[in-house]
Design a binder for these strands. Structure first.
Lengths: 111, 111
DNA sequence: TAGGTTGTTTTACAAAATAGTAAAAACCAT
DNA sequence: ATGGTTTTTACTATTTTGTAAAACAACCTA
């Protein structure tokens, strides 16, 4: 079977890319909930982040002790080159297909 | 868990939309192989088409006997309104996230 | 300095959805 | 009947997603 990237993983990966060097479990969770109006559990995001790391699409390091009021050190995630490639290729493949779709077909008002 | 649409299903759905009224098992398979350079089994496509139909994202009807040299009647698939909505929403959600990604991050030459 | 509080990661597991395959059945034309 | 094309069925494998609970780390207060 194909080992690529799932729907949710793609979202998480995009958010990591967007947050540049500052992505960690909670920040990614919040971004998804805010921007996509989709409720997610923190633990789901963590699981996803770890899987992405296993696949080499992100990498992580423990941050400095910059915590103001308690709390464990954050693990910051950044997208890797392979991650960028995966993201770009997925998008390009879709774009290519979208171009083939007649605009009349996709015009919701005419259905 | 979320019941949405998988990576492969999205591709199949896009191809059905692109082929307008003429999509059937083999035509979809060929389109994917040609355009995405990705090998797929005919039966995988069929399974996917049926699943999409169960979800209400495509609908199908048996075609006329237009077959020239033998062969069973084709089952033609068309995208439904729900299918179009699903496709558009998936794309819009991604586009929204893409906009947040700093272009410097996604520039592969600089990695 | 002990204990509580909070934010965070880590682990280990469970459930569900997706993808894939092979073989059989159906249909049609010759 | 034979052969070619396509659908249909039934099943399996794999991946993806989700959840809960435990472990950890720092700070705060008394």
């Amino acid at each position: 079977m194909r080992s690529s990237i799932g729907e949710f993983e793609e979202i998480v990966l995009l958010v990591v890319a967007a947050q540049h060097d500052q992505a960690y479990g909670l920040s990614v969770t919040d971004a998804i909930e805010d921007q996509l109006k989709r409720s997610v559990k923190l633990s789901s995001v963590h699981t996803s982040l770890y899987r992405l790391e296993e696949k080499g699409l992100v990498e992580s390091r423990i941050g400095k002790t910059s915590t103001l009021r308690g709390g464990r050190k954050k693990r910051h995630f950044t997208i890797t080159k392979a991650g960028k490639t995966a993201l770009i290729e997925a998008q390009e493949a879709r774009n290519q297909l979208w171009q083939q779709v007649p605009s009349s077909v996709i015009d919701l008002k005419k259905v």
